[in-house]
Amino acid sequence: MKSFTYERASTPAEAASAAARNTGTRFIAGGTNLLDLMKLEIETPRHLIDVNSLALDTIEPLPDGGLRIGALVRNTDLAADARIRRDYGVLSRALLAGASGQLRNKATTAGNLLQRTRCPYFYDTNQPCNKRQPGSGCSALGGFSRSLAIVGASDACIATHPSDMAVAMRVLDAQVETVRPDGTTRRLPIAQFYRAPGDTPQLETALAPGELITAVTLPKPVGGMHVYRKVRDRASYAFALISVGAIVQRDGSGRVALGGVAHKPWRIEAAEAQLPKGARAVTERLLANAKTTDDNAFKLPLVERTLAAVLVEARA
């Protein structure tokens, strides 16, 4: 770990402007991802701004019937919230399928959205990795890629985004609220939040330097059956090989997003029109431009089969 300076921010706007003043700044929330990466010198911030004392840890109703989830609401608290469990079941289930109880007690809503890939080469600083060290190459291409992306990737990076929560947020059409260093705020639909890897896989989101997430908002409940199905090699405490988050309505329409297949939660609204035709039709559309490796080609049939099972469950 490189040595760093540290401060505790007192307001969101101040945190953002302080971040812009010091190059090489990171916010630290639960620290469950950032600290691990700092120990391995994958992240080497020179300055940390602790956002834990910002009053961003509540879940408030919105006038339009939705909810505003503070950036610092812990994953455990979010999953347990009665409104989330009643109206946004897919989110509660996705959260509870992630990490462990101890980690969820620390992990925050914003930190979860911004957790970094679990590509094994990203974690080994001896190996080339464009995401960690731009321009050094991608070791996963031609290497071990079982957990990596089958859609949306580039020749520079095939990493997946590992979050379960983000998949549910995508199905729910969440929006990310931020404050920028100049004090202005904005709202970003989650669909526009993650950037495609392209030639710059080190740039992962639409956030500008210093921009702080203050909340994630959910639109008013859409009803339907909420399912989150995470498929993994062991029964708990493992990242998804693939996951399916779905909301299915009585009339057979619905929404579907996938985890574990791309650099972001993977959802194509147009594919959802195929839902009445069944899982194959939806999958064909969702994964139309899939590019697999020997290691991860199994994800194609796995997505289709899992989605089929999810639809059976949702309609039962």
Binding site: R118, G143, F144, D233, Y237
Partner: peptide
Amino acid sequence: ALMEDLVIDKRRGFFVNHDLAGYEVPVHAD
């Protein structure tokens, strides 16, 4: 039987999944 596997990078000769996130052993739920 079900999960343990030190995966070799055959180009560079090392076990790739060299931590407990990558090298899975059973947890209680298994």
